[in-house]
């Protein structure tokens, strides 16, 4: 039912084309891109930023911005890790996820409360809470790289399958955490497509006053949204430390700006209202390939940030142009009115 006209107006096809072109280029130059182990390695590198990007996309769609999710993830996973270690817990990893998720949810709820009920600007609030959570982690909990409890360590060793590169003999394991990503994608897809709550997030991003008049409880929706993003971040934190097998408090800090860039690259409108899961995953994929696969064509990893920066600039520049030309027509009409 999607018309061709609206297809060309979307940015997913462009990002997808860029991914295809980049992977073909790397494949042509190295012959190593479309190998089982490289693809599995990419998928592994994708899990954490992709999980973050889902929440980040929802926030930007609602017209906000969140720079605290990495701090939430770090503090939630660190407290969980330390508590489980101290209690000598040896049960299922599910408790770790539940606990970290719950802590994340609480921290997200603080954001949501300040933003939803006190109507404070999102960037400033999340800057403040981000600083607060990082400080609590390093200050109150004197965080430093630490072991993980056996449950998390064992969970980190679970693999779905192992891909072997026949030429080089290198193997890569597909981590089971990828299932969390799939689960989160399905859940959020159902949320934004089939619930009034999800439609409310888009409605608020389109026109907050209109959403209020239509009968959406804007403050509660925002509270839900930021709490949900906190929950996702808490879960992502445990997924992260289980994959690297030790609880490094700094492992996720600093990712927030790249995640935001990936989300916008994937076609989410910075001013809110528009954004899709497909586009977001495309955006994260493109950034992950840039960060991980350029080495295959002989570009040293030292230079990968240059490419990341260039892609952010070119990608957002192109989408800024698109939005500009699409709106200009309507705007000239409106202006006279």
């Amino acid at each position: 039912m999607i018309s061709i006209r609206s297809m060309t107006r979307r940015s997913e096809p462009y990002v997808f084309a860029a991914i295809v072109a980049l992977s073909l280029l790397i494949q042509a130059r190295s012959g190593q891109f479309f190998t089982g182990n490289n693809l599995v390695d990419l998928a592994r590198a994708l899990i954490v930023p992709a999980l973050f990007s889902i929440g980040c996309m929802l926030v930007i769609v609602s017209g906000g911005i969140d720079v605290s999710f990495t701090a939430i993830a770090s503090l939630a996973m660190y407290v969980t890790d330390k508590t489980l270690l101290a209690s000598g817990y040896s049960g299922s990893v599910l408790l770790a996820y539940a606990m970290s998720g719950a802590l994340g949810l609480l921290m997200g709820a603080l954001n949501g409360g300040l933003i939803g009920f006190l109507k404070l600007p999102t960037l400033v609030v999340t800057l403040g809470t981000g600083s607060l959570f990082t400080g609590v982690m390093y200050g109150v909990f004197a965080a430093s790289a630490s072991d993980v409890p056996p449950a998390i360590a064992a969970h980190g060793k679970q693999t779905l399958f192992t891909a072997v590169n026949l030429e080089s003999g290198l193997t890569s394991n597909m981590p089971s955490q990828v299932l969390i990503l799939v689960g989160a994608l399905v859940l959020v897809f159902l949320l934004i497509r089939y619930t009034m709550l999800g439609r409310g997030i888009y409605a608020i991003g389109g026109d907050e006053a209109a959403a209020e008049r239509a009968g959406f409880s804007v403050a509660w929706i925002k509270l839900f949204l930021y709490s949900f993003v906190g929950l996702l971040a808490g879960i992502t934190g445990v997924a992260r430390i289980s994959m690297i097998s030790y609880a490094d408090p700094s492992t996720m800090l600093g990712m927030e700006l790249t995640v935001i860039a990936a989300v916008v690259l994937g076609g989410t409108r910075v001013t809110g209202g528009l954004g899709t899961l497909t586009g977001t995953i495309f955006g994260v994929t493109l950034m992950t390939i840039l960060a991980n696969s350029l080495i295959l064509i002989g570009i040293p990893t030292y230079w990968s940030r240059v490419f990341t920066g260039a892609v952010i600039i070119v990608g957002t520049g192109v989408s800024a142009r698109q939005i500009g030309s699409a709106r200009r027509r309507v705007r000239t009409l409106q202006k006279e009115a």
């Binding site: 209109a210 209202g273 528009l274």
Partner: peptide, 11 residues
Amino acid sequence: IYQDFSVFPNL
């Protein structure tokens, strides 16, 4: 019907 119509432009 308000002056700004109270519609959602993005939907």
